[in-house]
């Protein structure tokens, strides 16, 4: 299956390339504004076109679809249903999709979903990791402090927790703060 990318910048194209390659799709990139779209589409017969939502070439693609029933046409609904993913593809990724009529809706839906999830999974994971980091860090500090107490004073883990909590209460600080100080300076105060 042939997919033509029009006016999709490298940042996005580089993200698209690996997933489309996995599915065995043949990818052709077009970023040159002077290329004759009529000629290109006529020679290449792409089954799907992914185009920048704001590309000035879009009206030409509309004309091609009107001239030739076998040309890819805009997809803004899948089957009869409004599709949230098409909306996200346009609004968030800035990509509009054109497909020939006989591409099954299910295939299109999967392709869009895969593209979207891949697009967002990496950035999404990165931000989730960022938000997890302080918590993991705090747990590490607490464990180190408890280990320090049990090893230095020969107390049980339960007693160590108790000691940290009492010191935190007395000083009006959080357990993590007290634990961090203990690990860093060897002193509760």
């Amino acid at each position: 299956m042939k997919v033509l990318l029009i006016d999709i910048d490298d940042t996005r194209a580089n993200k698209l390339e690996p997933i489309l390659a996995w599915t065995g799709i043949e990818l052709i990139k077009l970023n040159n504004h002077n290329t004759d779209i009529y000629q290109l589409v006529g020679e290449m017969h792409p089954e799907i076109i992914l185009v920048d939502t704001n590309s000035p070439n879009r009206d030409t693609l509309e004309h091609l679809a009107q001239l030739n029933k076998a040309s890819p046409r805009t997809v803004i609904k899948l089957g009869n249903a409004r599709s949230e993913s098409i909306n996200r593809l346009a609004a968030d990724a800035g990509i509009s999709i054109y497909a020939i009529d006989n591409i099954p809706t299910k295939l299109l839906q999967s392709l869009i979903d895969i593209t979207l999830s891949y697009f967002y999974s990496i950035e999404h994971l990165r931000s989730e990791i960022q938000s997890l980091k302080p918590e993991i860090d705090a747990r590490q500090v607490l464990n180190n402090a408890k280990k320090f107490i049990t090893e230095t004073y020969g107390l049980t883990e339960e007693q160590a927790t108790d000691l940290l909590s009492k010191n935190a209460n007395r000083q009006g600080r959080t357990i993590t703060e007290v634990a961090r100080q203990l690990v860093e300076t060897g002193s509760f105060i």
Binding site: T53, N54, S55, P56, N57, R58, D59, L61, E62, T74, I76, I86, N87, A90, A91, S96
Partner: peptide, 16 residues
């Protein structure tokens, strides 16, 4: 500012 009529049409259709 939009670059194509198709873009305007679809964005109104999609609620963008």
């Amino acid at each position: 500012r939009e670059a194509s009529w198709a873009g305007i049409r679809d964005k109104v259709g999609l609620g963008i």
